[in-house]
Amino acid sequence: MILGIETSCDETAAAVITPDGRILSNVVSSQADLHARYGGVVPEVASRRHLELVTPVVQEALRDSGTTLDDVDLVGVTAGPGLIGALLVGVAAAKAIAWARRLPLAAVDHLQGHVASLYLEPDPVEPPFLCLLASGGHTMLLDVQERNGKPRVLGATLDDAAGEAFDKGARLLGFGYPGGAELDHVARNGDPSAYAFPVARVPGLDFSFSGLKTALLYAVRKLTAEEGERRRADLAASYQRAIVRALVERTRQAAEQIGATRIAVVGGVAANSELRAALAEARAAPLALCTDNAAMIASAARFSNPIHYPGYLGLDAYASTA
């Protein structure tokens, strides 16, 4: 069995999968409520919570899977990118568990983890494919040629991540934090053509969402509180349409450019209903595996080159890939 551990941002997660990629357990303890009062993830608050939760979550994942550490052959942990203090909690715990049992350890890249959410049973995707990774922290287009190894980055956001754009827009519209999912929900009752929000045109295959957020801000400012309330669904629908359109256009453009026959979408934004509908030809990660989780980390560990004892004892985490 493979034990996966993920603590890169605000979800403390652990999962157990089989060597052939079946999920036996997938425990995610979200800190969203904790950070809601700050209107965003506070790194020190997140790190403190990860420490409280990391071993209880691992124990729950083992219990749910009906296995014990005796059944585990490999530990996979997110080593980066992410919040460094948060990552170090998961890495320290994973190293200790691996060392105590003399197990190999896989240092998993979080982004490759998202891609690996597509390799889990019952319906795994086979490379090569073009992958749109869109989450609260990242927006990139990846050329995935094989399950093992780093995919080539074709394009990335120049400013906000798509999920960040959703959350910031949601805040402007008075939804709670994180409001991306609620915005998606309310947008279903709105007219997506009510407002013409601009889709930023940047060269190459990159994205830019900061102008869109500003456009929404101006549109909201022009309205009285009462009008804003009444037109909230229209604003949400139009704003969402603009983000989705940017993602879809760029993704199709990239697919054409590299001659990809298959497209996949992963990350928290892959849970967005309009994106899933608009990119109907793409394989989207299962809903439960879109937001950060440890099953995807275990899945990436499965296709990685694990570090054997004692090579990982000094393993450090990394905040960014740069």
């Binding site: 790190s47 403190r48 990860h50 420490l51 990391v54 071993t55 691992v58 124990q59 550490l69 203090g85 170090l88 909690v89 998961g90 320290a92 715990a93 994973a94 190293k95 200790a96 568990i97 060392w99 105590a100 049992r101």
Partner: peptide, 14 residues
């Protein structure tokens, strides 16, 4: 936190 996470991981595994 590195110390406590290490201790917790060891305690869980041992």
């Amino acid at each position: 936190r590195i110390g406590l996470a290490t201790a917790r991981g060891l305690a869980l595994a041992l």
